[in-house]
Design a protein around this nucleic acid. Structure first.
Length: 422
RNA sequence: GGAGAAAUGGCAGAGCGGUUGAAUGCGGCAGUCUUGAAAACUGUUUUAGUGAAAGCUAACGGGGGUUCGAAUCCCUCUUUCUCCGCCA
């Protein structure tokens, strides 16, 4: 959620930046400003009534003490009448406040200056590309045939025990998963990240904190009996560790990494493009999360991009980095880089990481601040990135490295795998 | 799951209906002293909203209630501790 302060003091810039998302938000912003004004004047009115009531209560107390019960009772009546007024003012103020919050929740983050105006995936800019086209056998197999051929992933079995989108990894397929997770975690540790193993069920407050709730309610699996949600990404629990936290400046930046399974309902996305491992309801991901001082956050975003770049390079996968345009960026993000690995047999790019700076958008909801040099509490910037999401990496690895007589796995994984070839 | 106890400022810990935003101690910050430091002494030390400011308002785990007035009484939820049960 954007800060009211930014909306109030930099109104024109906020409107201008939001328009980069390909939609004019001027009216929304102006409505927020007028609602805020109404709320504040109602609040002033309420506070004045409360002040009066406090004075009366004090006087009554003193009168009782000095034994002037009659006078006290007179004042009591006055106070009672005031109370009615306070109650209705409270309700009105609360209504306005809820309206204001609802409107603020609906407003996406303001894109950073680097973001180009755009309306969808076609307007994204490719900012980096690495690797050569894989050399493939005559009739390369898509990964869902390779996983079948070498008994790596059993989709049918997953259908049976859970449903579509919940594959069972078997044998070398399962070991490849484990190797990738360990490789990604170790690389992050070497880059100075601190390992976290968070819960994979979170409460409502956490969902609100990182912005999944209330708008993306339908995208998460929800245990209604306990009112807990399955996490769609480790970002949710790991960022929420800092909900309602006041950090010291010297604690920043905080660099955390966590491996978790991720659960996404992916409501409404079915069809041929979701075959095999391309889109799942449950998948594994290693996520890097940083909490940073505002003046450092863009430098840190670059550092995170470099980290992800390094992983893909070591895996030897042809990939590209896109800087997302305004229209394709997530709701909470100010700047996002997507990483796409080339999938040789499918002949298409698969998104394997999304690395973003949220600036204060999440921190504002989370109330995560730090005490700055002037001793003032200031909102932190939050950043996160996949490093990396497994299924599409597996898809690319299998497809790009297939030969007539097996699949050669990259060297960086050998120590983790205990084998080199499938 | 059952029975009981508890939740107060950065921490420890008073308060249990009326100038208590909250005693006291520790810690933090500033100063005096000192060549410097320690000790000692003095002062200061929560956050948010609103306002030009003075000020005003709110917050003693969360929510609700009683009352002219609640940290203090009642209800409820959450969490922690102790005992019992169950269990990887």
């Amino acid at each position: 959620m954007l800060t009211l302060n930014a909306i109030r003091t930099q109104t024109d810039e906020v409107i201008e930046r939001l328009s980069l998302r390909g939609k004019d938000r001027k009216n929304d912003v102006l409505e927020i400003l007028s609602t805020d004004e109404q709320k504040r004047s109602k609040q002033t009115e309420l506070e004045q009534a409360l002040a009066k009531s406090n004075v009366l209560a004090k006087e009554i107390g003193e009168l009782f003490k000095s034994g002037e019960a009659e006078k006290a009772n007179l004042l009591k009546n006055e106070s009672l009448a005031l109370k009615e007024n306070i109650k209705s003012l409270e309700l009105e103020q609360l209504d306005l406040e809820q309206l204001l919050t609802a409107k603020l929740y609906e407003l996406p983050n303001t894109p950073s200056t680097k973001v180009k105006l755009g309306y969808g995936a076609d307007d994204n800019e490719t900012v980096y590309e690495w690797g050569n086209d894989p050399i493939l056998p005559a009739n390369p197999l898509p990964h869902w045939e390779l996983t079948d051929k070498y008994k790596l992933v059993d989709f049918e079995l997953g259908n049976k025990i859970t449903g579509a989108g919940f594959p069972v990894y078997t044998g070398k397929g399962a070991r490849l998963q484990r190797a990738l997770i360990n490789f990604f975690l170790d690389e992050a540790l070497a880059a100075g990240y601190y390992e976290i193993q968070p819960p994979i069920l979170v409460n409502e407050a956490s969902g609100i904190g990182t912005g999944q709730l209330p708008d993306k309610e339908g995208q998460m699996y929800h245990s209604t009996i306990d009112n807990l949600y399955c996490i769609p990404t480790a970002e949710v629990p790991i960022t929420n560790m800092y909900r309602d936290v006041l950090l010291k400046e010297n604690e920043l930046p905080i660099k955390n990494v966590g491996y978790t399974p991720c659960f996404r309902r992916e409501a409404g996305s079915y069809g041929a493009h979701v075959r095999g491992l391309n889109r799942l309801h449950q998948f594994d991901k290693v996520e890097i999360v940083q909490i940073a001082r505002p003046d450092q956050s863009y430098e840190i975003l670059e550092e995170m991009v470099e980290h992800v770049k390094g992983l893909l390079t070591k895996l030897g996968l042809k990939f590209r980095i896109l800087r997302l345009c305004g229209g394709d960026m997530g709701f909470a993000s100010a700047l996002t880089y997507d990483f796409e690995a080339w999938s040789g047999a499918q002949q298409k790019w698969l998104e394997v990481s999304s690395t973003s700076n949220f600036e204060t958008f999440q921190a504002n909801r989370l109330k995560c601040r730090f005490k700055n040099k002037e001793g003032k509490n200031e909102l932190v910037h939050t950043l996160n990135g996949s490093a990396l999401a497994l299924p599409r990496i597996v898809a690319s690895l299998l497809e790009n490295n297939q030969t007539e007589d097996g699949i050669n796995l990259p060297e960086c994984l050998h120590p983790y795998l205990g084998f080199q070839k499938i």
